[in-house]
Computed example of a mutant assay.
Amino acid sequence: MKPVELIKQPILEEMELFEEKFKEAMQTKVPLLNRITHYIIRRKGKQMRPMFVFLVAKMVSNGDFKERTYRGASVIELIHTATLVHDDVVDDSNRRRGFFSINALWKNKIAVLVGDFLLSKGLLLSIDNDDFDVLKLISIAVREMSEGELLQIEKARRLDITEDVYFEIIRQKTATLIAACCGIGAASVNASKEEIEKMRLFGEYVGIAFQIKDDLFDYGEEKIGKPTGIDIKEQKMTLPLIHTLNTCSEQDRKWLIKSVKKHNHNKKRVKEVIQFVKDNGGMEYTIEKMNEYHKKAMDILETYPESEYKTSLKTMVNYVIERKK
Rank of each mutant, 00 (worst) to 15 (best):
M1A: 11
K2M: 15
P3S: 14
P3D: 14
K8I: 13
Q9D: 13
Q9P: 11
F18S: 00
E19Q: 10
A25G: 08
M26N: 09
Q27N: 13
T28G: 09
K29N: 15
V30Y: 15
V30E: 14
P31H: 06
T37S: 02
H38K: 15
I41Y: 12
R43Y: 13
F52D: 02
F65R: 08
E67V: 10
G72T: 05
I76L: 06
I79Q: 07
D88Y: 03
V89S: 08
V89C: 08
S93H: 09
F100W: 15
A104T: 03
L105Q: 02
L105P: 03
L105R: 05
N108P: 07
V112C: 10
S120D: 11
L124A: 10
L125V: 02
D128S: 12
K136I: 07
K136R: 09
L137H: 06
A141V: 06
V142I: 10
V142N: 07
E144Y: 12
E149H: 01
L151S: 11
E154I: 15
E154Y: 13
E154K: 14
A156C: 13
R157T: 14
L159N: 01
T162F: 05
F167L: 02
T174P: 05
I178F: 04
I178A: 04
A179F: 06
A179C: 08
A180D: 00
G185S: 04
A187V: 05
N190Y: 09
S192V: 01
E194F: 08
I196R: 05
E197L: 14
K198P: 11
M199D: 04
R200D: 14
V206N: 03
V206C: 03
G207R: 04
A209Y: 04
F210S: 01
Q211D: 07
F217I: 02
I232L: 02
I232A: 01
K236Y: 04
M237A: 11
M237L: 12
T238Y: 00
P240F: 04
I242R: 04
H243V: 13
N246C: 13
W255K: 05
L256N: 00
R269M: 10
K271V: 12
I274G: 05
I274C: 05
N280S: 09
N280R: 09
Y285M: 05
Y285D: 04
E288A: 13
N291W: 13
E292T: 15
H294W: 12
H294M: 14
A297H: 02
E306L: 00
S307E: 00
E308N: 04
T311C: 15
S312R: 03
Y319E: 07
V320A: 11
